[in-house]
Write a protein that binds this DNA or RNA. Structure first.
Lengths: 147, 147
DNA sequence: CCAATGTCAGCATAACTGACATCA
DNA sequence: CTGATGTCAGTTGTGCTGACATTG
């Protein structure tokens, strides 16, 4: 088997966290929240955020964000309320249940980071986090060719 | 916007590489190869590998690997040949075109790592790679509950 | 008979584009 | 009118499970 490259290792690392988190949440009888839906929670302001703004923060199409938000509203973790400043906007915010589930998930992730530190060492985890928190800038455009 | 967590940062980092790689390949007129399909190349032995073995290495179902392999065969990057040791097995291996595309992609990824080093520093990239190359072990099973 | 393999078929999720009504 | 927003509809890609024939 050829040697793995960096992007694949990054994907595998993400999968390590995601599968463990999903298993832990399911073991506690929580409603299943997909990775894409988790991104919504991380992009939400406490005061509420529009779908279009969420999409920009998540780097996906407005329609993709809409789909994730709609699913979360349906299972009672998010709710909509009209924006007092503009009738065409609607603010998305968490319900009490949504905040509870969010807190549970955050706690699990923190626990997973500790477990990881126990396996590969706290310095390695710190190095990983440090490198990922830096500003990578936008993905490089085609380096050469027709500019 | 709440603070991003580690798994999301890992996903964003993977996306940084993947989108840049896809843009670069497309700019050169190469056939589009998805992330899932790239995983197949990384899991392939030079002498050929069965679909079932690929699936185990990639951590996906046999059927998922089959689908990716089939798509790559259809566009001429992989081929099948019977296994001399067992009639029920078929070895999957790269065509000449497949090896060429693989080499191009590897070169692009190496270039991207250099660009990244220029942005966040070579030590940060080395730290990232180092932490990801360690053995994380299997994703933790639900820590408590009904074992 | 049992297990592994390759394959087909169906389903769920999540991204995309296109289209359109509404409203600042 | 123009542009931003929310939404519906359709398509694609990728994973899954179930099922089944073949073969060791």
């Amino acid at each position: 088997m050829a040697e793995q490259n960096l992007p694949q290792r990054l994907g595998a690392a993400r999968h390590w966290f995601e599968s463990a988190l999903a298993a832990a949440m399911e073991a506690e009888g929580e409603q299943p929240v997909s990775y894409a839906q988790q991104l919504v929670f991380a992009a939400l302001d406490p005061e509420g955020t529009t779908v279009a703004e969420l999409a920009r923060r998540m780097g996906v199409a407005r329609q993709s964000a809409h789909q994730a938000v709609h699913a979360l509203i349906k299972i009672g973790l998010l709710r909509q309320e009209p924006d007092p400043d503009s009738a065409r906007r609607r603010r998305i915010l968490m319900t009490a249940e949504g905040r509870r589930v969010d807190a549970v998930a955050r706690a699990h992730i923190a626990g997973l980071e500790e477990i990881l530190a126990g396996r590969i060492g706290a310095p390695a985890v710190a190095a990983l986090t440090g490198a990922l928190c830096l500003d990578w800038g936008p993905p490089p455009r085609p380096p050469v060719a027709g500019s």
